[in-house]
Amino acid sequence: MLEIKNISKTFNAGTINEKRALKNVSLTLNDGDFVTVIGGNGAGKSTLLNAICGTWRVDEGEIIIDGKDVTLTAEHKRAKYLGRVFQDPMMGTAADMEIQENLALAKRRGKKRGLGWGISKNEREEYRELLATLGLGLEDRMTSKVGLLSGGQRQAVTLLMAAMAEPKLLLLDEHTAALDPKTAEKVLEITEEIVNKNHLTTLMITHNMRDAIKHGNRLIMMHEGRVIVDVCGEEKKNLTVEDLLEMFNRASGKEFASDRAMLS
């Protein structure tokens, strides 16, 4: 479903702030994989996701989604293969637009936007049912501006949007990091439901090791722009946080240095 071949990215090349964010990263995701990504600050997790999305072009390597080489494809064109949820709940939805309008925007991802109505009557009914599955009561607030919702509600709506229009790949960039623990748990629950219901191939960045172990069928750990651990199947299921720390120390030759990750 996703093939990343040897990609590299350096920011501010040739300056004092030069940062080699990705170093020859290769990664292949099979159809239906749910991969969790962990790593300390600056490990290259978000950079990897942005490379897949096409926020900028990679310096080297190839990115292939569903058999199509998208290495040079513009971000908005790539979007038709991708469902994205950002870390910042404000970033995934248009605050000044209605809930139903946001969903309608997502439904048209990858399609031509012409002079037909931005949202049709049939769609409203469809969205009402879709929103009802969240169990947050949003189905009765379809014409409310998204800006009036809480962070957790906005992430839930963004998840629904990301899963619309049949994406090949769902990309979650620490999408629960800005939420309180209870809301984060609820949003993760919704994530599981949506991923299972739509059989989505998923890449989820998290700073929470327990979440990384609990969710998905495969786990990768990044460090200094490289993938240093890649486990799946039974081995992944039986992991503990201690195992992960041990693996990190062995693979990187350093102590795991992110307090945020360790304490979670």
């Binding site: 979007a79 404000m90 925007l105």
Partner: peptide
């Protein structure tokens, strides 16, 4: 009428949240 169409909505989205618009495949 125009800002209620698919194209018009996508223009409103562009002004409101450009990151979200690109993620939803809008040519901002």
């Amino acid at each position: 009428w125009f800002f209620g169409t698919e194209l018009g909505c996508s223009i409103r989205a562009t002004g409101c949240n450009i990151n979200m618009s690109r993620a939803q495949g809008i040519n901002t």
